[in-house]
Simulated assay, not measured.
Amino acid sequence: MKPFFRFFACVSFALCSFACSHHTIIPDDELALIFHDAFLANAYLGGRNPTADSLNVYEPIFARYGYTTQDVQYTIGNFSKRKSARLGNVVERAITMLDAEGKDYSREVAILDTIDNVALRTARRTVRADSLIRVRSLADTSQLRFAFDVVPGAYDVQLTYLVDSLDRNTADAPRSRMWLESADGTQSQNYNIILRRRSEGYISHRFKADSGHRRLRIEFYSFTGRPQTPSVTVRNFKVEHTPEKAEAVDLLYERQLDLRIFADEFFRAAQKDSL
């Protein structure tokens, strides 16, 4: 509330010198609007402390409502003569307007966030999915090596696995390796994990690709020593791509133009979901 007090200090600076008979008394409703706009001006000015010489900051606000600085000064000074009116009530009205606007802006942001989430879900696509992969020989391990061309966005890799007791790679535990690769072969965002044995494990990892990346490479079963006969089962392997938010929103608008998904009913439902 300090900005309001600073504002009142500025407009009250010349109260002792103005002539009461030559100025207009501003109605309370309009005065509240002026205080509202002045508060926003103070917020825009930041931590700077207005002085009497800086009243020109407020003059355009007063002029927009058809009043002068002297009219505002006169109206504020006149409150002491009005038994049924309090300046604090006008200030409170301005604060109420600011609070209501803040809630409206928060609601609009929530709606936009909801649209973003819908857009991202709608644009997400599965790059590769396998419900079951069994590897029982060295030759079978080729089934667990993948390379995907990538475009900007997020790539989510998920799977469950079991390295059972028949797996002979006991001396050097096998690893799962994944990374993004640039056009010149440079690796980035390397993900490297030792595979657990004889109990089901779960892997979930997200890669963030940009325009400099060309491929996502996955070597799920990678040997660290001399390869021995493997015995591993992979279930529910999935790679999903989600484009960047701006592209996803554009795609959603393009796809839904004919369905009028952004009609009033959609926004009302979005508001309810975000509350």
Results as ranks from 00 to 15, higher is better:
Leu112Cys: 00
Leu112Gln: 09
Leu112Ser: 05
Leu112Lys: 08
Asp113Asn: 11
Asp116Asn: 01
Asp116Cys: 03
Asp116Ala: 04
Val118Asn: 10
Val118Arg: 14
Ala119Met: 00
Ala119Tyr: 01
Ala119Trp: 01
Ala119Asp: 07
Leu120Lys: 08
Arg121Met: 10
Arg121Ile: 06
Arg121Leu: 11
Thr122Val: 11
Thr122Asn: 10
Thr122Ile: 09
Ala123Pro: 11
Arg125Ser: 15
Thr126Glu: 15
Thr126Lys: 01
Arg128Met: 06
Arg128Thr: 11
Ala129Gln: 13
Ala129Lys: 09
Ala129Cys: 08
Asp130Tyr: 13
Asp130Glu: 14
Asp130Gln: 10
Asp130Leu: 06
Ser131Pro: 15
Ser131Gln: 15
Leu132Cys: 12
Arg134Ala: 13
Arg134Asn: 14
Val135Arg: 13
Arg136Pro: 12
Arg136Ile: 11
Ser137Val: 04
Leu138Ala: 14
Thr141Ser: 13
Thr141Phe: 12
Ser142Leu: 10
Leu144Gly: 13
Leu144Tyr: 01
Phe146Trp: 04
Ala147Val: 06
Phe148His: 12
Asp149Ala: 13
Asp149Thr: 09
Val150Phe: 00
Val151Tyr: 08
Pro152Ala: 09
Gly153Ile: 01
Ala154Tyr: 06
Ala154Cys: 06
Asp156Glu: 14
Val157Trp: 00
Val157Asn: 04
Gln158Thr: 13
Gln158Phe: 14
Gln158Asn: 05
Gln158Met: 02
Gln158Gly: 00
Leu159Trp: 03
Thr160Lys: 14
Tyr161His: 03
Leu162Ser: 00
Leu162Ile: 00
Leu162His: 02
Leu162Pro: 00
Val163Asp: 03
Val163Phe: 04
Asp164Arg: 09
Asp164Cys: 05
Asp164Gln: 08
Asp167Gln: 03
Arg168Cys: 07
Asn169Cys: 02
Thr170Asn: 00
Thr170His: 01
Ala171Met: 00
Ala171Arg: 01
Ala171Cys: 00
Arg175Cys: 01
Met178His: 08
Met178Asp: 06
Trp179Ile: 01
Trp179Glu: 04
Trp179His: 14
Trp179Ala: 08
Trp179Leu: 08
Leu180Val: 02
Glu181Ile: 05
Ser182Ile: 01
Ala183Glu: 09
Ala183Ile: 05
Gly185Glu: 07
Thr186Trp: 02
Ser188Pro: 02
Gln189Ser: 05
Tyr191Trp: 02
Asn192Lys: 08
Asn192Ile: 12
Ile193Phe: 09
Ile194Met: 06
Leu195Tyr: 05
Arg197Ile: 01
Arg198His: 12
Glu200Leu: 08
Gly201Trp: 05
Ile203Leu: 09
His205Glu: 12
Arg206Ser: 12
Lys208Ile: 10
Asp210Tyr: 10
Asp210Pro: 05
Ser211Met: 11
Arg215Cys: 03
Leu216Trp: 03
